[in-house]
Amino acid sequence: MLTVQNLKEFGANVEEGLQRCYGNEALYIRLCGTIPTEKKFDELAAAIEAKDLDTAFDTAHALKGVLGNLCLSPMYEKVVDITEYLRARTDMDYSKKIADILADRDRLRNIAE
């Protein structure tokens, strides 16, 4: 189960995230709890696998917005990084970057469980 404490331990900037939620801790925790099951992580991985960089960019961009608002750094920073490569449609090996992001997602999933 996610708590302020374990989110902090995960690396989230909880203070800023709570501010953005107008101090509504329950809301913040609930919204963070949706991230482990967020389909866009897998969609991003699939798009990159399929070399569909347009879809990959759109998906990364959407994830970036959500993670940024929840201040789920360092996951957020990783998504920002991949988004910029995808924005330029850079033809490169994304597997390491994707793996890192998915690892963070899984880590958060473990905490949530």
């Binding site: 939620c21 919204l31 917005g65 608002n69």
Partner: peptide, 13 residues
């Protein structure tokens, strides 16, 4: 906004 998280944060504000 298509992202539920973003919608909820804004709505809460």
């Amino acid at each position: 906004e298509d992202e539920m998280v973003n919608r909820e944060i804004l709505s809460n504000i």
